[in-house]
Each structure stands twice: as structure tokens, then as C-alpha cells.
């Protein structure tokens, strides 16, 4: 059963240089209990994709130029802000990279969790408090009842991210979107938070979209992977396939440029050039100027996402040819 289905989503922004598509023709779907990893570098459009699904982009300057976001039998792009508010929380909720800026510094964490629950359910104060303590307990905050009255600045970065997760899960959402949830955290804390997200997925069965630039986070958590580059989806496959048989030259480059923790390498395999800014994207394949396999055709037409193997699609004119031995 499909939990979320995004079809041909294009989101544009009005800028000084005219209207620019931040993401183009993005399509993906997610099933209940599944973890989809969206991986990409700066400007790939991974966060804009998430914010469009959540209906959190200010319009204007943003505009959904095309496509649908189907969730629970409705197209979220057609809903009013009021209707979207009812979806956020019990339907879809989101956690962000920087927990300090996402929490309100002048309210205790207990107040913020209770406010989230109260926005969707009418419950007596004592019950709200009990639910908030239970949530903090669930996300591994020690002596939750005592910490409820603490303020965000009294907690460490890892604990603040746990509080964010508690708030996001307080209304029992069917889908959680985690945008770089561990990027600001130390590696030991990152491991704890990733374990926690997977434990909560197992317990509550919600779908999770994890957005990251880190292939390691993908390897640790994702069931399926979608790779984005310069606003477009360039490859999608089950996680083991992405690591074992990447078809797009960019995906291969992303995997090769990360140094190994166990093997010595004289040199890293870098991808030449830099990521294009949204307003200065090349015509044709966005990756062509940096691609070692580019042909003249790559510079003129945009390759579309094409299913090349069962459950494995890529957007590259030469993918089939490069994959064959």
C-alpha cells in the first residue's frame, strides 16, 4: 500500500533572474514502514522536495508549477493552509538539521511537546503531560519527568535532536521526513540517533524519508535510495543495488570519492568541476559538464528517468551501454 506518492513535481522560485525551477519532474513513492533515503549535494533539491511535500514553502516566492503529492487519497498540493495544518502532525511530520533553531528558546521542552499534541487533540492538562513524558521516554531522554520543564539551552545537541523527534512523533504520524537529522551531530551521537529512528520505525511502522548528503547514513538506514543532482532525480534503486551496481556516473562518483575507513588509497577519485547553481544549470544533462562519459548528445537533451532493471531506474543516455561489461 502506497503511503506517499509524488508525481512529476516541479517547484519554481521567483528570483532576481526570473523564475527558476528548484526541482523538476520529481517522482517517487514510499510504502508504510519503509525508509527512503534521498541523497544529494548542495543545490540538488532534496530539501525543497521535502518542504514542498510538507507545504512549508512560502508562496510566493515558491510556486508548485506542476505535479501532485498524493497522501491518504488526497493531493496535498491542492489543500488550503488550514487543511494542511491538519495533515502536519498526525499525517506527516518533519525534523530538521539544526535542533536549536527549530525549538523555541523561551518555552520549556515540555510546553512545546504538549502544544504540538494539543493542536490536534483535546486532552486535559494532566493527560498532555503524561503523553509528553511518555514521548521523551520513548526517544531515550533519561529521567523524562524531571527534564520536561527544562529549556532547550539546558540540553546537549543530541538531546535536542531527541526532543525534536519526540515532538515530531507526538501525534503518531504515518510519515516522518528527516532532513539531515544528524549532520550537526558528532559521530557517536549520530549513531545513537540513527538507531533511534530505526527502532521507532520498527515500533510504530511509520514511513521515513531521510534526506542526507552522507552515503554512510544511507547505507545505515535506507531501504530504497533516490539520488538527486541539480534539481532532478538521476537514479533510484533498492539500497544494496545503489551500492553494488550504480548505473548513473554521478552515483558512481559519489560512492568513489568517499575515502575508505579500512583501505589505503593513494588518491581520491574526485568529480571534477563544481555543482551548478540553480539559475546557471547547463542545458541537457545537468551532470554532463562534470561527467567523464559525456557525449555531444548529453549537452542538448535532458535524459529522463528510465527503468533499466527491475526496481532500478536511472536518467542517463549511456547508462545501459556503460553498465554492460
Amino acid at each position: 500500500m502506497k503511503l506517499l506518492e509524488v508525481r512529476d513535481l516541479t517547484t519554481a522560485f521567483m528570483t532576481g533572474r526570473g523564475e527558476v525551477n528548484a526541482i523538476e519532474e520529481v517522482s517517487f513513492s514510499l510504502e508504510e514502514g519503509q525508509i527512503l533515503g534521498i541523497v544529494g549535494e548542495s543545490g540538488s533539491g532534496k530539501s525543497v522536495t521535502a518542504l514542498t511535500v510538507m507545504g512549508l514553502l512560502p508562496r510566493p516566492p515558491a510556486r508548485i508549477a506542476a505535479g501532485q503529492v498524493l497522501f491518504g487519497g488526497r493531493d496535498l498540493t491542492k489543500l488550503s493552509e488550514r487543511e494542511m495544518q491538519a495533515v502536519r502532525g498526525p499525517g506527516i511530520s518533519m525534523i530538521f538539521q539544526e535542533p536549536m533553531t527549530s525549538l523555541n528558546p523561551v518555552f520549556s521542552i515540555g510546553d512545546q511537546i504538549m502544544e504540538t499534541i494539543a493542536a490536534h487533540e483535546r486532552l486535559p492538562q494532566a493527560e498532555l503531560r503524561r503523553r509528553a513524558i511518555a514521548m521523551l521516554d520513548k526517544v531515550g531522554i533519561p529521567s523524562a519527568a524531571r527534564r520536561l520543564d527544562d529549556y532547550p539551552h539546558q540540553m546537549s545537541g543530541g538531546q535536542r535532536q531527541r526532543v525534536m523527534i519526540a515532538m515530531a512523533l507526538a501525534c503518531n504520524p504515518k510519515l516522518l521526513i528527516a532532513d539531515e537529522p544528524t549532520t550537526a551531530l558528532d559521530v557517536t551521537i549520530q549513531a545513537q540517533i540513527l538507531d533511534l529512528l530505526m527502532d521507532l520505525r520498527d515500533e510504530f511502522g511509520m514511513g521515513i524519508v531521510i534526506i542526507t548528503h552522507n552515503m554512510g547514513v544511507i547505507a545505515e538506514t535506507a531501504d530504497r535510495v533516490m539520488v538527486m543532482y541539480a534539481g532532478r532525480v538521476i537514479e533510484e534503486a533498492p539500497v544494496a543495488t545503489i551500492f553494488d551496481r550504480p548505473l548513473h556516473p554521478y552515483t558512481r562518483g559519489l560512492l568513489e570519492c568517499v575515502p575508505s575507513l579500512t583501505e589505503d588509497r593513494a588518491r581520491l577519485v574526485a568529480i571534477p568541476g563544481t555543482l551548478p547553481e540553480p539559475a546557471r544549470r547547463p542545458p541537457g544533462c545537468r551532470f554532463a559538464p562534470r561527467c567523464l562519459h559525456a557525449e555531444p548528445a548529453c549537452g542538448t537533451a535532458i535524459p529522463l528517468l528510465e527503468t533499466l532493471e527491475p526496481a532500478h531506474s536511472a536518467a542517463c543516455f549511456r547508462a545501459r551501454e556503460l553498465a554492460s561489461p
Binding site: 559521530v187 557517536t188 545513537q192 552522507n214 554512510g216 547505507a219 535506507a222 544494496a240 575507513l261
Partner: peptide, 27 residues
């Protein structure tokens, strides 16, 4: 040892959850 064990896997077959020792708590 804990720092190295916390580095994310480089392949999904080496997923660390439940297999590697974690250190609890924060610095």
C-alpha cells in the same frame, strides 16, 4: 574504539545497528 565503531557503514551489508558497541550519552 567507540569513535570508529560509530562511523556509518560504507555498504548496507555492514550496517552497524545492533551489531556494534555504542557509547551512551553525550560528551
Amino acid at each position: 574504539r567507540a569513535l570508529i565503531a560509530a562511523v556509518p557503514a560504507q555498504h548496507p551489508a555492514q550496517r552497524s545497528r545492533g551489531r556494534r558497541e555504542r557509547i551512551a550519552g553525550d560528551i
